[in-house]
Design a protein around this nucleic acid. Sequence first.
DNA 1: CTTGTCGGCTCAACCGCACA
DNA 2: TGTGCGGTTGAGCCGACAAG
Length: 359
Amino acid sequence: MRKLSASNLVAFINQLEKNTVYNYINPRTKGVIKVEGIDLPEGPIRIKRWEPAKGQSENDKSVEHISTEMIWRVANAFNPSAPINLDRVLGGSYNTRSVLEALLAYTPEFYFCYPGRIENKGGQTSIKHGHKHLLWRPDSPHRLGILEKAETEIVISEMPALDAFYDSLVLPSDQIEEQELDIEVLRRHAQIQIALYFIGKQLNFRTWIAQNDKGILYQNKRIGEYEGVIASLKDEQLMIAYDDAVQAALLIDCIWFKNGKLMPAVMEVEHSTGVTSGLSRMKNFKDKFPPFPTRYVIVAPDEDRDKVIKEANKPQFADLDTRYFTYSAVEELYALCQRRKIKGVTEEFLDCYMERVLN
DNA sequence: CTTGTCGGCTCAACCGCACA
DNA sequence: TGTGCGGTTGAGCCGACAAG
């Protein structure tokens, strides 16, 4: 799935004429916008806006900012051909959100549209005229500097989409002391491990969680005490004969076992620590273990795609045939597990969430 | 400066009513 | 029953403003 980054959006807007006065998408909105300046690569974007109909002029107004944070949130929300509503993505927040929306619509890959809205009242559904949405169509750009409406048959269901929820968790205190990492990064790492455990549980896998992460408290219970979490690798049938492999596996973030005979995936969660260490750990494990069908997986944020691909393609890691499991894919699968008690998932199904990255 | 909340503006849809 | 009219609502949008 193609994704956008903040620098993509900023670069698009940077193509727009700086001295042009732009209108909003909705013709009823009388205000106008001018781009004052752009900080590459990720913003902020500086703009002015005023309302000529009220006798205002550019000179009356001070410069406002479209923040990098907002741009990132919007960039993350886009998927090709899927309309998004900025007010909703941003929770109605950010002052300049309508400006960002308008400017994007002037760039070639973005269209605006009004998808229908499915209204559900007491079991009765009807389709109403919907809100304004932006549509990303990377494969059919329009002319720069004009607004183009996309006619779409798409209808939006306003049932909550796939959101993943994490209950609060407590990290083992020794872990915080020994690592200088940001606590939020540790928390994110742990959330993903928990998601992986629950996905595994749903699929009837037994899960190994790294020795030093078993103390994480989730819902007042240590991860290591959860049903289906493997207490000791030495007792796992597959591993009994391979002491060296057990040693190598102790610090691997997450391993799934199935039926005592299969090992669907070996996973390393890499949050900003660089993917090399995870790849090394998995490579070390693979070398100590007889050839066995499994998947070696790097679980990493979506925006680390380039880094993951680059590292996984280094010659020393080539035989891992690394898969990339993005955080968003983990959360999508986790959300599916929370909402629908999916069963009978095949290995092929997993494969569609874990991309191959070898060139 | 950034971000979240809240409210104002506008217009279309809706409603109730009178009248043909 | 259908139509026209005036008043009322509220969806949709944008931005003022306060808190961080």
